[in-house]
Design a protein around this nucleic acid. Structure first.
Lengths: 356, 356
DNA sequence: CGGCGGTGGTTAAACGTTTAATCACCGGCA
DNA sequence: TGCCGGTGATTAAACGTTTAACCACCGCCG
């Protein structure tokens, strides 16, 4: 089953030179006269020559592919991630092979093995919460959270939380409910920790973990947010736009107007953040930058290996910059607090008033 | 830069046999005694032998990788798609290389070329709306819409629309507003067409394309849905959960209670559909099945090629089943119509009442 | 007992590339 | 004239696998 196009030998033959010369000309490595080199390149172009990665890989031991392993591809953030990494990688001449561990940590190792078997040169791992990545046979970049040991590069979730908290603080919020999936996740802890820190100790914060509160048919899946509002909470800060949507929606349904009566914030700037009414105030990750840093670090390590440097590859690579700032996106779901605390008048509250 | 583990030659050497025998034993192809074969397999296992895809690829012309090209990875549906395809592919022993065309059709061709250069055996294309895929050098499966010429397999969007329309019809809706991004997309046309068809001619439908209505800061990004409600529309059927969210949110904000006063439906069952209040009634794609069919069709074609069959590879492969049914997920955003038409009392409408 | 088919294995070539080693040639210098 | 260094190209080996062709051996039949 010969592959399609012309190979090196064909173009060499057609010009009456040796394959080595053609290889040299195209790679610019050996010694070839400028004139011949030009002719070779021209012919290669004309014949539509495409180098065989297989041949090259066999010879060089490099496949030019990096693996991307995700804890759960179904993560709504995944599109951003994959797109950014694919872009950064292809800019650097690398392909991206994906592997999904579908949640379970055991499958995560399997996913990694699949990639290893395919001979990826390196990989980027966005691990399942709490999973540790041991020493693999290739350079690994870990994208998780600055507070995770071994983390190569990631958004600065704490700092982001700080900014978000600051934003709420400036709007006068002093009693805010923090919403996250679960406390095992470093990124969620960081985000919430930052918010809490920015709010300071004169503010009162409570945290609600809702991973287990799966909305199910028939069952009541309310978070009881109206109750918190009644208790005087003026802001609901979440670790994800999905949670923010849930909060926003539940509050609105209960007749609480956002943002005039309560503020809601998200995280990640998912597509949905722009289509809610009011649109969500949220925090955006600079995923392109993160991807670029991860890929760059990986390639650097690979180059080092080439030079024969003894690689300390037991642990993930270190990127040039470990944390990259997130960007606060202020939209319409946050506003200054208007009521004084405590305020228990939720029952008779008129709803749905448009924001001025 | 030799690759890590032991190669065939090593395990052959350690057993005092030839590489060919080892290869045969492991692949089960040649003639090797059962006893020796077992010993070889055992040793291979012990030494942690991993076959070099590069070597194999070079010899067989097969990389064992299929490419996945997406119009826009940032598509919120992408996680589902990628996960399903990665699963189906890895089940079949294939890896998945991704390429994102970032919207532009010109980049789509570039993305395809990138994959081709990496020597993918086949690819799955989820094209940008309206793009045509010409003859590539490898088998291609096209996942778009049954009404797209050359489509290999996809969800039955029309049928799905029919089911959704039927659902609304049974609830008594006779005046429904159809919302979609734009009319260039076959899948959107199919979905909306199905809905319209199910509603029948005694129903009145209007269509609103909102691709250009990007929510932008400062600007009014309202769709004027309250106006439609005032004109007597009782249901808002959209081509995507994202649009549904937008509609739901805008209507609620305007004081219209969902579903008691108006119904809203989405499509695709994104994660967000479960966290809105009320939760969205939507339509789910059987992506795993679609992926499985696409991968299977591709592999079949590849096997045919192996046998030397002359391949009619000018057009995309045909899957065993071209359309796969979508599943209606009835949640809480749809309900029987309660008001008689026309009903113009939106202004004094009390809002936010909870659904009984 | 010579040939024959089956069994269990080996040899060798091939896939396409890269790269170290080699070589032919030429002008310049001792 | 003999040698040397540089230039421009070739030769050959190597990466790891698969597979067609080959071979030695054995028991059996004619």
């Amino acid at each position: 089953m010969p592959r399609s196009g012309p190979r090196l030998s064909r173009i060499a033959q057609s010009l009456g030179v040796s394959v080595a010369t053609v290889s040299n000309a195209l790679s610019g490595k050996g010694r070839v006269s400028a004139e011949l080199s030009a002719r070779i390149k021209k012919t290669a172009e004309e014949m539509g020559y495409v180098p065989s990665q297989a041949g090259r890989a066999l010879r060089t031991g490099r496949t030019g592919v990096i693996g991307l392993v995700l804890a759960d591809i179904a993560n709504p953030l995944f599109p951003q991630i994959a797109q950014a990494i694919e872009f950064a990688a292809s800019e650097a001449g690398y392909g991206v092979l994906i592997a999904d561990s579908r949640g379970a940590s055991s499958l995560q190792m399997e996913a990694i093995d699949r990639l290893l078997e395919r001979g990826v040169d390196a990989m980027i791992v966005i691990p399942r919460r709490g999973t540790r990545i041991g020493a693999l046979g290739c350079p690994v970049a870990l994208i998780d959270s600055p507070s995770t040991p071994g983390n190569s590069v990631s958004a600065d979730h704490w700092e982001a939380g700080l900014a978000m908290g600051q934003h709420l603080r400036e709007l006068g919020h002093r009693k805010v409910l923090l919403l996250g999936s679960g406390s095992e996740s470093n990124v969620q802890n960081d985000r919430l920790g930052g918010i809490r820190a920015a709010l300071g100790k004169e503010a009162v914060c409570e945290t609600l973990w809702i991973a287990h509160r799966k909305p199910r048919n028939g069952e009541d899946f309310s978070l009881g947010l109206a109750g918190y509002y009644a208790r005087g909470f003026t802001a609901f800060a979440t670790t994800s736009d999905l949670h923010a949507l849930r909060a926003l929606s539940e509050l609105q349904r209960a007749g609480i107007s956002i943002p005039s009566q309560a503020s809601v914030t998200g995280f990640d700037d998912l597509a949905l953040a722009e289509v809610t009414s009011p649109r969500l105030t949220t925090m955006r990750m600079d995923m392109p930058r993160i991807a670029e840093l991860a890929v760059k670090a990986l390639i650097e390590r690979l180059d080092l290996q080439d030079v024969g440097e003894r690689m300390p590859s037991s642990s993930p690579v270190e990127a040039a910059q470990a944390k990259v700032a997130m960007q606060l996106v202020v939209r319409d779901s946050t506003a200054p607090v208007t009521r004084s605390l405590p305020y228990q008048a939720i029952q008779e509250n008129p709803a749905g008033e448009l924001r001025p």
